[in-house]
Design a binder for these strands. Structure first.
Lengths: 125, 125
DNA sequence: CTAAAACCTGACGTTGACGTCAGAGGCAAG
DNA sequence: CTTGCCTCTGACGTCAACGTCAGGTTTTAG
């Protein structure tokens, strides 16, 4: 009980967030502009993030990869907080899930098509 | 053997291609600009497509949905023709397959994350 | 023959998630 | 104190697959 006396010790700066999350500094600033992050500021104006901002940024990347927009991610962020979710948000969650599911099927179909072509080009070089 | 005397009878115009393939006329012109289609021309300059252009356009859509660019699709078009494929093209086929496979895994992971959140928000409304 | 519908060629606009550059400060090390 | 890296705020650039509009020709239905 010596290094964990305060709740939120040792905030990190934007460079560390970016490096640990595997994105660019510009991207992290962009997430703030889109309302996904609201870091504290040092007296000189530098952004200060809690350590788990890294986890959050990775989550954003995952959602972006799934085709969600910044706006959607921002709208669904309260769901990340237990108890802060209404009917509309739960409906959006399900809608996005359905979108991803459909996209998965499309990708699988495209993969099958490519496999067909690959097989033909391999047996008929 | 009365309606199929010629090899490639009754070409269709761009509107029919677009409607049957479920895309816009603009999209079909764009595919031509990108080298994916090379329709014949009527004396007055209108584009004339063989009927199976519809199948081709659907295939383009599928590849676009899988994240391929017009350029990549154009480069891989010869593979569609049996016997017109070299080593480089077969390598590209495999590379794209790997990309799609990775994307599939990413999407599946995102879907799982969303399902987690959905479950939590459902049990803690 | 005429009016509607379809087609043509440019060419500029859109969208989203950043990249990139400019110019100016901030911070630990030597 | 200065060197070098990190950070700041704008603000313009990018890329891809089209959308959209303008202004004109062609085909088709009646």
């Amino acid at each position: 009980m010596a290094t964990t006396d305060a709740v939120d010790a040792r905030p990190i700066r934007i460079g560390e967030v970016a490096r640990d999350a595997g994105v660019s500094v510009r991207a992290v600033r962009y997430y703030e502009q889109e309302g996904l992050l609201t870091p504290r500021r040092s007296p000189s104006g530098q952004r200060l993030y809690p350590r788990d901002a890294v986890v959050l940024v990775r989550f954003f990347q995952q959602m972006y990869a799934a085709g969600l927009t910044s706006r959607r991610i921002a709208e669904l962020l309260p769901c990340w907080d237990i108890g802060h979710t209404n009917a509309e948000q739960r409906a959006m969650l399900r809608a996005e899930r359905a979108r991803i599911r459909a996209k998965l099927d499309d990708l699988q179909a495209a993969l099958d098509r490519l496999d067909e072509i690959i097989e033909v080009t391999d047996t008929h070089p």
